[in-house]
């Protein structure tokens, strides 16, 4: 009976309710705080911005089940749903650098156009190459399950 109880408990653990939003924010704040302490330890020639460390930290915490999805996903999904709006100030900050745009704006736009196409094509074909190697050299399965 006791053993049975344990199994049911483990099964229902998945359906436990989401953590209160303030706790979710607290987890984000704690991860950011730790990240902001780690970030300055890297040399200026190899900068690792706070969000990079936070991203890796949160992923590791999720992968090791120290933090569960239900502890963070409500606040996290909400923040991701806002991401395009959150970029507005980054776009508008160009107002402080309009002279750069005046001097080489057309060139910058052309380079960005080239860069976008190059990144798409080169990454896609490099991946196709590595997938080909996986399939034909190492004979490993290349199916992606949905």
């Amino acid at each position: 009976m006791a053993a049975n109880d344990k199994v049911t408990k483990a099964e229902t653990a998945k359906e436990e309710p989401a953590s209160p939003i303030l706790i979710q924010m607290g987890i984000f704040a704690a991860i950011l705080f730790v990240s902001s302490l780690i970030s300055p330890l890297f040399p200026a020639s190899f900068p690792v911005p706070t969000p990079v460390i936070g991203l890796v930290l949160l992923y590791v915490l999720l992968a090791t089940h120290i933090v569960k999805l239900r502890n963070v996903e409500k606040f996290g999904d909400f923040m991701i749903s806002l991401i395009a709006f959150l970029f507005v100030p980054s776009g508008i900050q160009l107002a402080a650098s309009l002279d750069i745009l005046k001097a080489q704006g057309v060139q910058i736009v052309i380079v960005v156009l080239i860069a976008t196409i190059v990144l798409l094509v080169v990454v896609a074909y490099t991946t196709a190459g590595f997938i080909w190697i996986r399939k034909n050299v190492f004979h490993r399965d290349v199916n992606v399950d949905d």
Binding site: M25, F28, A29, I31, L32, S35, T50, P51, G54, L55, V56, L57, L58, Y59, L62, A63, L69, V72, E73, F75, G76, D77, M79, I80, L82, I83, F85, L86, F87, V88, P89, S90, I92, Q93, V144, D145
Partner: peptide
């Protein structure tokens, strides 16, 4: 005001660990 909105990119960026973890099998 812009800086206040900009600050929220910090939690929003680390939140991308969540969709990454959801695809952890892949």
């Amino acid at each position: 005001g812009g800086n206040i909105i900009f600050w929220f990119l910090n939690p929003a960026t680390i939140a991308f660990a969540i969709p990454l973890y959801r695809r952890n099998d892949v």
